[in-house]
Design a binder for these strands. Structure first.
Lengths: 245, 245
DNA sequence: CAGGGGCTTCACAGGCAGTTCACACGTGGT
DNA sequence: ACCACGTGTGAACTGCCTGTGAAGCCCCTG
């Protein structure tokens, strides 16, 4: 069981302080991947592998937000959520193994600020962490515009929704991640390995050409012709990019 | 007239040099992935697939840091660590297959500067490489160069795009690599073998004159006259260079 | 447990890019 | 000025890269 704490910058008595995120999961790999992403986004990260460790970590120093797995040794995520919210008014994002659990949790009025179901992409988690922090203290969190526009296409990270000329386009999780990743830096070229990592969290396993398949499906849905693309351009021998030539 | 925007560099006797990382692993894919990420962060990367090759590579030219797999044909990573640290005072990051091995290794006081356990994310590795280099020589490591300017030509690595006086010039992958490689050290002369390696990743197969063909095509696209070049100059009997005379 | 959706992998086809060759031209040395 | 050798160049050839449809697999759903 591992817990991670992450932070984004915040102004405190005139001093710039990184936001701290506590990540709690017993899967070391998940913790590692999330840590890397959160750190690269400017958060400070602390980790815990089980319930009691998480409690100790929060008691020692209150993080700005906690990411809790539900299945946890010692004390489970639900109990932790109750305790942290009551005692520390801590924003919480719960991680569940099954989608259906979310409904049950909401029914139980657990009161977490957001939920993420596995499998999730690191990008998605980071986006939600930022969203919750933004919502909670309404402040300026650098980066992460909630929506990006490329031509008449609009990518809304918070709602996880893409519209073209106002029309909603239904995308799968992977397709959205692919598009959102590339659109976060329009014009920048992304290699297949980078995209594979952004989509699956691991660049080492998996077939690079899988990305091609997703790009194909994505293009079909957004009505993009590979020969004359408006949105997703292929960069021969390198990868793909979105937007400006 | 040469202008450099940003880059991962260090001043050495007045000369700008990229940091060099030696990646040693017998898994070709891992080497490939790590190389890609490290290069995209502005590092020069050399690779070796076994112990003896690594020794030869370091003897030939000392890298700034080495990334060693523990399980290695010929000479294992632990022995390499001892040798490199004793003989070259080389910063080392060890890669292990099992987390538990790390504790054992620390117990053995191998003296590596850091450890990474598989599976790891490429980002994590890059972060640790930077951290170790920062720790070792105290200097801040800036982010990867986003663009280099030579006269009115701008080479944007992130977008993989070249503009001259604001006009975009369409280049193939090889042409871009060629130009970007030479432009990373304006004024420095590159031999055909060096360029062949930079472009194909392998200097030992291929015809040197192939570079000439690419230079020809490149010059045509950027509007450079071989007799009176503004950007890519021929160094008779040696190779090519970009920029200042 | 049958159905469906989504992710991955595979095989094939077409096209673009890389390589090579041969010859013309320029360079530098004698 | 001549010669030898390195370089510029256009065209043909080869090979790699990408786009694509289809099949397999896994997980979730009803």
């Amino acid at each position: 069981m591992v817990g991670i704490i992450v932070t984004l910058r915040r102004l405190e008595a005139g001093v710039v302080v990184n936001r701290t995120v506590l990540v709690v999961d017993d899967n070391a790999k998940i913790v590692e991947v999330l840590s890397a992403y959160l750190k690269s986004e400017g958060f400070d990260v602390r980790t815990a592998a089980d319930g009691p460790s998480a409690v100790a970590s929060v008691a020692e120093q209150r993080p700005d937000i906690a990411l809790l797995d539900i299945m946890l040794p010692g004390i489970d995520g639900i109990e932790l959520t109750r305790r942290f919210q009551r005692e520390h008014d801590l924003p919480i994002i719960l991680v569940t193994a099954k989608t259906e659990e979310i409904d049950r949790l909401i029914g139980l009025e657990i009161g977490a600020d957001d939920y993420v179901s596995k499998p999730f992409s690191p990008r998605e988690v980071v986006a939600r962490v930022k969203a919750v922090l933004r919502r909670v203290d309404g402040s300026h969190i650098p980066d992460a515009p909630s929506a990006i526009e490329v031509g008449d296409m609009r990518i809304d990270n918070e709602r996880r929704e893409v519209t073209i000329a106002g029309e909603v386009v239904e995308l799968t999780r992977t397709e959205f991640e692919l598009l959102a990743t590339m659109a976060s830096h329009p014009g920048r070229v992304y290699g297949r390995l980078q995209l594979l990592e952004a989509v699956s969290g691991d660049a080492f396993e998996g077939y690079e050409r899988t990305i091609d398949a997703h790009v194909k499906n994505l293009r079909k849905k957004i009505g993009d012709d590979p020969r004359n693309p408006r949105y997703v351009r292929t960069v021969f021998g390198v990868g793909y990019k979105v937007g400006t030539d």
